[in-house]
Amino acid sequence: MIEESTLKQQFGDGIWISEFRDNRRVVVSAEQVHHLLAHLKNQLGFDFLVDITAVDYLEYENSTDRFGVVYCLLNMQTGERLVVKTFVNDPNPSLPTVYSLWRGSDWMEREVYDMFGITFTGHPDLRRILSPDEFSSYPLRKDYPLKGRGERHNFPVITRAES
């Protein structure tokens, strides 16, 4: 079990642990997140990266930051789970990549980049993954409408006579 006090000794007071249901969560600043993840992986045995995702807090009540980036970790030996969370902001949301720690993070980071426009510095191949390369919006941001901006209608029409 990760104790808040031991982490505070190492990473200062900017880190805090909360609990909800059976999820333990560590919130840390964007500068320290890579350092913390490396510490968790190498010293505390969280060797399995379950998921990387992001949340756009634009319309969330009482939120101060725009994007939250979430790392779900798992300790394969003990089965303990931990959620690491950090916040980034406009105009240039950016985080260091964790590709050097977990190679499985490759596509997860690309998806976060594709959907939210958060860049991961040091990522070897940060391209769009799900949307077409020409796409210019970030669809999962809250200011992008559900039905898009007409992208789905801009294709040539083939009629029966000409095919």
């Binding site: 998921d51 949340v55 756009d56 969330y60 009540e61 979430v70 779900c72 596509w107 997860m108």
Partner: peptide
């Protein structure tokens, strides 16, 4: 897995899926 963010209403504020196929294909 699902990562659910709730803003107190009856719909999810964010419903992230952790899809196994996505990770296996990578």
């Amino acid at each position: 897995g699902f990562y659910l963010v709730s803003d107190g209403t009856n719909r999810a504020y964010r419903a992230r899926t952790r899809p196994p196929s996505f990770i296996h294909f990578s």
